[in-house]
Design a protein around this nucleic acid. Structure first.
Lengths: 270, 270
DNA sequence: CGATTTTTAAAGGTCAGACCATAACAGACC
DNA sequence: GGTCTGTTATGGTCTGACCTTTAAAAATCG
């Protein structure tokens, strides 16, 4: 007898009606994939708070048995939800599928990919940034906490150090914008910002940015940071608008345009 | 002899190095899932334009054979990319995986889900809308084409008809905002808008909107539409700001707040 | 000949069962 | 107490079979 054979009551995984143990009925609707039905139930359970972040789902084998489905169907459901950012899957003993702490990284990735494929132009990219970054800066000035501010300060210092040391500063540039978005305490805006910043970095990945521009960037960050620190909302707004406008202007110079070669893409990953 | 046994040269699916036919090397990095490696190659091929939208990938069985992997690994790769919005999968003869025409619907879904889980509050939601919808209206006024305008006009008429007929007008409300975003010709903003609008509809799904408010909404749409039609950018901007501000105000009335019951969620789907 | 029905085959979807790889844990051994 | 070493639960992969769906091809009918 396995130690966990007690009926641990998982009402959320029940079908709404017709308990005969077959799937056929719901399959008719929904374009018919068992794994999708399973995924949908889990999604609902999570979004209704029945499955809290961090909690562990049944193992593939066990859920399959309970649902009267094959392991593969369950597996596919879990996998989809992982791609969608809802679950994390860990291997090994004590592994399994866990409801993910809310984290927009997977969405940011998908969104970036989609925008890239959608042939999002530099025009759209900077246009969008021009519209959303200044308001974000304003919100950041309004809402940044002490620790937010410390983190940003550190970031800028490291950014400056990287430039002095001749290292690639793009990473820090990106992080600054992300950190600022974090301060604004507005999830939708944060996610969009992150995706845009990602793409921006990628778009510039094969451009050689002159040293003068690099230090100009970090100085810009510093004054924006200063405005945020002092909670000067309007100044933060104006400076950020200026900053993005500056970038936009530089992008228009012909020498700056991205080479249309079939170059290596920026591989994200850790 | 099967008719398609010719070596159809698919260089993109080759490993970069070491052609011995095993996966072990790349598996070491990358946290190790063959399906992820396959997915990554396809993703790269698509984003480099080697696989054009609409083109059909090899069948699961065939790709598995060529890659010396199991069908399941390929299948999982395809499935992940489908969730990510990169592929569509069709069943039946002449079915298979196709590179999707760029379409942000899957991302919109994921994003909405994520925002919902992130306990995005009404405050964040309307705040974000207040920031991005007016600029979108302005862009729409600048860039709407003739057919865009016709579509919007139709929509408004149907919206009004639905209200007169006592039908649920929410659908049309949503569609109006989507259509407007479409006019702005800015993909990142469009995607965000769509997600926000989706969430908004959902958040209001169990609120009973009084008739007076309903017609007010459609009238608002009409004047915004008018401004867009006449390419009056600033008026479109102002009106939209007013519109969202109006919504925001109504949301603050206590009777309007969503019941915190464990009610049924808005099921999207077709 | 053209429209309709039937057949067929190619593809994804599901299943079952085996085995591999990984990672935490429990003891055994120093 | 710390390190090694098996044990074991769990996801990852593979095989090969069968089901279901769907479009095209063939057969049938008017």
């Amino acid at each position: 007898m396995t130690p966990r054979s007690r009926q641990s009551n998982l009402p959320w995984l029940e079908r709404k009606s017709s308990g005969n143990g077959q799937w056929s009925h719901e399959l008719a609707e929904s374009g018919g994939r068992i794994s999708d039905l399973i995924a949908e139930r889990i999604r609902t359970a999570v979004s209704d708070g029945i499955l809290a972040p961090g909690s562990r789902l049944l193992s593939e084998r066990e859920l399959a048995q309970r649902l009267n489905a094959s392991r593969e169907s369950v597996r596919e459901a879990y996998r989809s939800l992982e791609v969608a950012g809802l679950l994390v899957i860990r291997r090994g003993k004590e592994g399994g599928a866990f409801v993910r702490e809310v984290d927009h990284e997977p969405i940011t990735r998908s969104l970036s990919m989609l925008l890239r494929l959608g042939k999002t132009t530099h025009r759209e990219l900077t246009e969008a940034r021009l519209l959303i970054e200044p308001p974000i800066a304003r919100l950041a000035a309004r809402r940044a906490t002490q620790s937010d501010i410390e983190a940003m300060g550190d970031l800028i210092d490291r950014h400056a150090a990287a430039i002095r040391g001749g290292d690639d500063p793009r990473k820090y540039d990106l992080q600054f914008h992300r950190a600022m978005a974090e301060c604004a305490k507005n999830l939708p805006l944060t996610i969009l910002m992150n995706s845009l910043a990602d793409l921006m970095v990628e778009a510039l990945s094969d451009v050689d940015i002159p040293l003068e521009t690099r230090s100009r960037t970090v100085e810009f960050h510093r004054v924006v940071f200063d405005a945020i620190h002092k909670k000067d909302e309007e100044r933060a707004f104006d400076l950020m608008q200026q900053h993005i406008g500056d970038v936009q202007k530089r992008l228009k110079k012909p020498w700056f345009h991205r080479k249309r070669t079939n170059h290596a893409r920026a591989r994200s990953k850790k």
